[in-house]
Structures are given as C-alpha cells and as structure tokens.
Computed example of a mutant assay.
Amino acid sequence: MNEVRDTLTGRLLLRQGVTSVAVLDALKLSSDYAVFEALNEQFRFPAYFGWNWDALYDCLADLSWLPADRYFVVIENADALETESGRPHGLLIDTLKRAAQAFLPESTGGREPAEFTVLMLCGGDDEALAARLRASGVVLDESWDSD
C-alpha cells in the first residue's frame, strides 16, 4: 500500500504551487479525539480549535493559517472506515465532504480558491468501501484507481 500511496501522492505533488498533505491511518482513528488529534497534528490547527466536530469543520473549511494551492487528506487503510452516521468515521467523512465543498469556487466567499481532495487508499475491499461511501452521499472520483 505504501507504494500505491507514494505513486499517487507523487502524481499529485508534481503539480505547480504549494500543496499541504495530511496522511491519516483509518486504523488509528478509533474515537472522536483520535480524529481531532490526527488532523490537528497534520494541519497545525490554531490554538482556538475547539476539539469538536463543528470546530473541525470550521478549521478544515478555513486553513488560512496554512496557505496552499491545494490540500490533500490521504487516508490509509480506508477500507477499515465505518461509514455509519454518528460514528467517528461517519462524522469524519461527512466533515471532510463539507470541507471540500467549502473550497469549491462558488463557495469561497471571495478568498482565493484552492483544491481540497480526500484520497482513500484501501488495502482490501475497496468496492465495499465505495458502496458504503456512495450510500452516505459521497461523490467518488475513481479516476485515481490504481488497478
């Protein structure tokens, strides 16, 4: 899986401009706090980060303290994600989806548009994960599929 991650991430990073990448391991995201801690560590949230889901969305949808042309959240072992609403993984997926929408050109509110992409790397049953994500309303771009 590391080879796939490195290849795909390398393709993304070869583009011009500044790129900020957060790499998370779904196997280590077993609680709300673990999700908040992992993203806080990767994106260096400001001291006012409130350690709750609304605060996570606010920080991810802003990221003004970390200027970049594109932001990538790479989730390793993504096939381990539980997508049920109300669970840490389901809340994470919903929060990442909303944050990505905040970076769309029509949603930037006058700030410079940037790209916000979530890349999910699976070591196992990626079709089952894709079905669960689609069922939760996530729009998938499978053009990065390594198979």
Rank of each mutant, 00 (worst) to 15 (best):
D54M: 12
V18I: 15
R70P: 00
S136E: 10
D145R: 14
L13P: 01
V74T: 07
G124T: 11
L12P: 01
M1Y: 11
G110D: 08
L39G: 01
L13F: 08
E41K: 08
Q101H: 08
F72Y: 14
L81R: 02
T19R: 08
S143M: 07
L60Y: 02
A135E: 12
R132W: 02
T7Y: 09
L92M: 15
L104C: 00
G90D: 04
A135Q: 10
V73C: 07
A100Y: 01
Y57Q: 07
G110I: 10
G137L: 03
V18G: 05
H89P: 00
V74C: 07
P46Y: 11
L96M: 14
R70D: 05
C59I: 04
A99L: 03
A100C: 12
R11N: 15
T7P: 00
P105K: 09
E112R: 15
R87V: 14
R111F: 07
C122L: 04
P46N: 06
L121N: 00
D145W: 07
E3M: 13
L121F: 00
L91F: 04
A100D: 04
R11T: 13
D147L: 09
N77G: 11
H89Q: 03
A102D: 09
F49C: 08
R132F: 00
Q16S: 11
N2T: 10
H89K: 01
E112N: 04
D69Y: 08
K28R: 06
G110Q: 11
Q101P: 02
T7N: 05
D25G: 05
V21H: 03
A68T: 11
L12G: 13
A80T: 14
